[in-house]
Amino acid sequence: MKLALSLAILAAPFALAACTPEAPPPEEPTASIADPCGAARYSHLVGQTSPTITVPEGQMYRIAREDRPMTMEMIQERLTFVVDSRGKMLSVSCS
């Protein structure tokens, strides 16, 4: 009888732990999915002529002119700055 009571007392926390709901997985930030290269940080430069651009070390980027050919491979981690012939920033995107 003592053995059964001891087992019941020891098993109670395990039984209660099995009843607690599992915590939901943490939400992934949608900004990193929608903006993997961080182009939103540079959106204030669109419309400016010859803006000063500072890109973090190690960040892939390119500056393309709208009237010149550009490779079309998609590298989501790369920043692409598109300027016109006068140096006006037309767009910033991840590609």
Rank of each mutant, 00 (worst) to 15 (best):
S95N: 12
E66L: 08
A18G: 13
M72C: 11
G47E: 07
I33K: 11
C37H: 03
V83P: 06
S93T: 15
A34M: 04
C19K: 13
S32I: 09
M70V: 13
G47C: 06
A39P: 03
S95P: 00
I9L: 15
K2V: 11
R68T: 07
L90S: 02
S50M: 08
L90Q: 12
S93C: 02
R78G: 00
C37M: 03
T30V: 14
P69Q: 06
V83R: 09
R41N: 12
L16E: 10
P69S: 10
M70A: 13
K2G: 11
S32K: 09
M74H: 10
T71A: 13
V92A: 02
P51R: 07
S50E: 14
L79G: 00
P21D: 05
C37W: 02
I53R: 01
P25W: 04
P21F: 00
P29M: 00
M60E: 15
H44G: 10
Q48P: 01
L16N: 05
R86H: 10
L7N: 11
I75N: 05
D67W: 08
A17M: 13
T20K: 14
A15H: 03
A15R: 08
V82S: 08
D67I: 03
L3N: 08
C19R: 12
L79K: 04
A40P: 00
A34T: 10
T80R: 13
G58Q: 02
L7R: 10
A17H: 08
T30E: 13
I63Y: 02
A11T: 10
I53S: 01
P24H: 06
M74R: 09
L10I: 14
E28F: 10
R41P: 02
S43E: 14
C94D: 05
A23K: 12
A39K: 09
I33P: 08
Y61P: 02
S91K: 04
P69W: 04
L45A: 03
E27Q: 13
I75L: 15
V82Y: 01
L5Q: 12
M60S: 15
L45V: 03
H44T: 12
Q48Y: 00
S6H: 00
